[in-house]
């Protein structure tokens, strides 16, 4: 089985997000970038399948600027085998990413795609589903447990009010939820080995996918500053304030 794991380079989840001075986007200059945490879970799941002898090769791919290669290397240090970097300096929307992934799936003969359910920068939560539709493959989204028995998969997913278990056949698409696994930390020897693994760089034009944006960002702004609360003396005053000043009762 050949697994494809797409990874996205996003602002590190520990960084306090700032809007750029033009108010057109989030500031990414001199900001620490990391792999999207859901994608780390996807890489970990793929590596575990390989370690269990259920997969032969893990291909890591990323769509983005030159920096995305660092993210691919991070996935290598966790256990990815080789990489495909689709170079695009501007933002790529989920549909275009899904089309690019379809192109790679067809080209590489992929059996299973494991993606993070969403990226923490735009929270779109679309790419996996779109990819499954484009490929006409079954999909299991928000997986919290994955069991592979030859060509049959059992996937547990978290839904409102409980757990749902799906059975699906390869080839298929899985998107990962937070509780699927706890990604490993790369060991030093594996970081060193990751340097030697191969990344093929390909301009986005080579994939034949039209990546021109379909969405226009009008404005990006910081959330309103929270104004301080105030203390009231007793319940009567509280009710009065809610009635007269706030007007919600």
């Amino acid at each position: 089985m050949k697994i494809l794991v797409p990874v996205k380079r996003v602002i590190d989840y520990n960084v306090k997000i700032r809007v750029n001075s033009e108010g057109s986007a989030v500031e990414t200059n001199n900001v620490k970038m990391s792999m999207n945490p859901f994608d780390e879970i996807a890489v970990e799941e793929a590596v575990r399948l390989k370690e269990a002898g259920k997969a032969e090769e893990i291909i890591i791919t990323s769509v983005g600027d030159k920096g995305s290669q660092e993210t691919i290397r991070t996935a290598f240090a966790m256990g990815g085998d080789r990489g495909i970097h689709i170079l695009n300096d501007s933002n790529t929307e989920p549909l275009a990413v899904a089309k690019i992934l379809k192109y790679i799936v067809d080209k590489e003969g992929i059996d299973l795609v494991i993606l993070g359910k969403q990226a923490i920068d735009d929270d779109s939560n679309q790419t996996g589903q779109m990819l499954a539709a484009l490929l006409n493959w079954p999909q299991a989204t928000f997986a919290s447990k994955v069991e592979v028995n030859s060509s049959e998969l059992k996937v547990t997913r978290e839904i409102d009010g409980g757990l749902e278990t799906l059975k699906l056949n390869l080839p298929c698409v899985i998107t990962t939820d937070l509780r699927l696994n706890e990604p490993r930390y790369a060991s030093l020897p594996n970081i060193m080995k990751a340097k030697k693994k191969q990344i093929i760089e390909m301009p986005i034009s080579d994939t034949g996918v039209d990546s021109s944006p379909r969405l226009e960002t009008l404005k990006v702004e910081e959330p309103a500053v929270r104004s301080g609360g105030r203390k009231v003396a007793d319940v009567d005053e509280l009710i009065n304030v809610l009635k007269e000043e706030v007007g919600i009762i």
Partner: peptide, 15 residues
């Protein structure tokens, strides 16, 4: 270098 940064990130996560 990228490698040095990688190494520090990974060590930071490890500990």
């Amino acid at each position: 270098s990228n490698e040095q940064n990688d190494l520090l990130n990974s060590l930071n996560n490890t500990i």
